[in-house]
Design a protein around this nucleic acid. Sequence first.
DNA 1: CGGGGTTTTGAAACACATCAATCATCGTGG
DNA 2: CCACGATGATTGATGTGTTTCAAAACCCCG
Lengths: 234, 234
Amino acid sequence: MIQNRHETNISCTTCPVAKLCLCDDLSKDELQCLDNSIHHNFTFDKGEHLFYLNDKLESVFAVYSGSCKEYVTDADGKEYIHNFYFPGDLIGLECFNFKSYPYSAISLEQTHLCVIPIKQLISVIKNTEHLPFRLLTIFSKKIRNDTSIRLTTNAKQRVADFILHMHMRFSERGCSEEIPLTMPQLDMSNRIGVAFETVSRILHAFQRDNIISMEGKNIQIRDLARLRDISGIE
Amino acid sequence: MIQNRHETNISCTTCPVAKLCLCDDLSKDELQCLDNSIHHNFTFDKGEHLFYLNDKLESVFAVYSGSCKEYVTDADGKEYIHNFYFPGDLIGLECFNFKSYPYSAISLEQTHLCVIPIKQLISVIKNTEHLPFRLLTIFSKKIRNDTSIRLTTNAKQRVADFILHMHMRFSERGCSEEIPLTMPQLDMSNRIGVAFETVSRILHAFQRDNIISMEGKNIQIRDLARLRDISGIE
DNA sequence: CGGGGTTTTGAAACACATCAATCATCGTGG
DNA sequence: CCACGATGATTGATGTGTTTCAAAACCCCG
């Protein structure tokens, strides 16, 4: 499925997002063992699929740079987006005991990925003390990522929730100043379940009220307190 | 926090929902090791809390019988329900690396729970080959449970999604005929993000159209195909 | 300098929430 | 055992937030 592409000497030991990925909490030996099981640095162009719905499941992906989305489409062609993935995130981990992928995944820009064959991942899990716990942490976080937009909220709250959630994720990546929206607003609207025209209107209202500012596709939060207030949680 | 209550000779080896719980996939020895770490059969009355938001995290819970919900409330007192839990489900597993519970959990009826202290769970994970993989499976399933109601759907689709999801969960428990709604419709409406009056109307419309039938709090699906059609997935 | 994919903006329609009142249900105590 | 209050469910009328439709403006990218 995945053609072998330009593979450089990237490794987990030098990876800048290792702390977000499988590697964190691992001993030096364990890290080496994991590193040996990973094929580093596959390049995907914008709009290229990592895999399609019902493709045979063979690998888990780790984002090295760039971004991706997971989605399914219904009979009408309407798109449901599970989540977006950024550097350090793992794609497909929760399918490890499936025969095939239950959704499609596509690159939102030029994206570099590391590929971990499931069989080898299972072997590493068996042979390392800390990886099982690391995986529990990753899954716990994924549950919070996947449920970050609440169902009981209105459109403004959802946009606020989305921005706050993105802010949190990019802060983890050492980028707390600006949130780069790598996806079109249509993707954002499909993720949060609001018409894209409504998203556009709300983003403009937030700018008018000096809650955020936008240049191009970058969002900067100017009033975090107001945003949290609109979101309504805590 | 948890008082020791009437504890009988229930064990994982004889538990009727073991296949849904931590036990599945474990060897006989591993099961024994797990069993020794679990305090079985704590009784919670309807409306009794398992734990409150910000309580110190000490244990994970397994539902033996009955049902529970996890929720948080916002500043206005509005309730957000993460999920419902039925026999074989685990509560609090995704908090294992937290200091305190990030939400509250309450019993919806008389409920029997098994309590697994986190420290001992970690020790069992370290000492068993299969439990780490069992946990990955449980987490994968939980992600699907937590995201079973899509954000981009209308009220009818959400009610349909909810019924289909409950149907799936109760089918796993050998109860595919009738879905016992142990929660009031208000809880269901808070879970799916639809006003409870709207839920009431939709449930009646579904009955009028012979898609479901209801006696008391039990839902019976009469036209699964129509329900799937309304849901719109696949 | 196009031209397809986005984003913006306005007007109209509608699905759903909200408000309000009635009805059913159930556990509790007199 | 029935009356009572509390809780949950139903049903209708009204208001509004959001979607939908439509058209224009923008903006990269080739």
